[in-house]
Amino acid sequence: MRNKWIAAPYVGWMAVFVVAPLIVVLVYALTREAPDGSWYLTAENFAGMAGYAAVFARSFLLAGIATVVCILLGYPMAYFLSRERGRLRSMATMLIMLPMWMNFLLRTYSWVFLLERNGFFNTLLSSIGLPKLDIINTSGAVVLGMVYNFLPFMVLPIFSVITKIDNRVIEAAQDLGAGSFQVFRRVIFPLSLPGVLSGVTMVFIPSVSTFVISRLLGGGKSLLLGDLIEMQFLGAAYNPHLGSAISLVMMVIVLVCMGIMNRFGEGEGEAVLL
């Protein structure tokens, strides 16, 4: 069955709904609206960006921390799950995906009840005689929200890569005298790196651009890039031209980061979700 014309409608669709919107963003980013309603070409939008350097730095820092925590939690989880036999292993993907079926906002919001001053977590702490912690409305809570929401995107690709490793490769290493730590370090870990790389992409990008998590768990105190962009389009600071410019800069930085990272991973950039 070879018929390349069957893709023609979708190629047209992509041109209109994927490429054209990005061109519109570019046009907005390079223009401003004059008081009389006409548009003029300008670089003002980018010149004003320096004032938001702190927001850029905070977003990339928090998203970076969240990504590292996701690796630290997600890698062992994927590895241990792949070592399980029977039921747990065959249901692992399902168990990790299941929370995603519950509304993302609600899941995030219910952390408020867990972390509040008089919430579940603090009640637990004070019942064993420890002082209460103010977690909610801090940057820590925002990172926690990111880790919670995007951890599945780290575990799934790693798990799928590890389970696909040929068992004979591991047996060969064992036959050649490698201990279990050496097998992990010299065989399993290098082979699982493509999964880690796609996990990093899938955690970092939504983290750096979120506005929901910072709004819900950060109490709107620590402004992130997502908040900044959202405000320019649907919020109080309505200015789609500036918003487009910020989006564009964020997109370019993220693409450059991912490009560098994938170069390290010898070009294994294909996303593996399942």
């Binding site: 054209a20 919107p21 651009s209 962009i229 989006s247 964020m250 993220v254």
Partner: peptide, 15 residues
């Protein structure tokens, strides 16, 4: 798939 959701959303809204 790789672009941030907010950029996909914003760009389509502008379109």
């Amino acid at each position: 798939m790789t672009n941030a959701d907010i950029i996909t959303g914003v760009s389509m809204m502008l379109l």
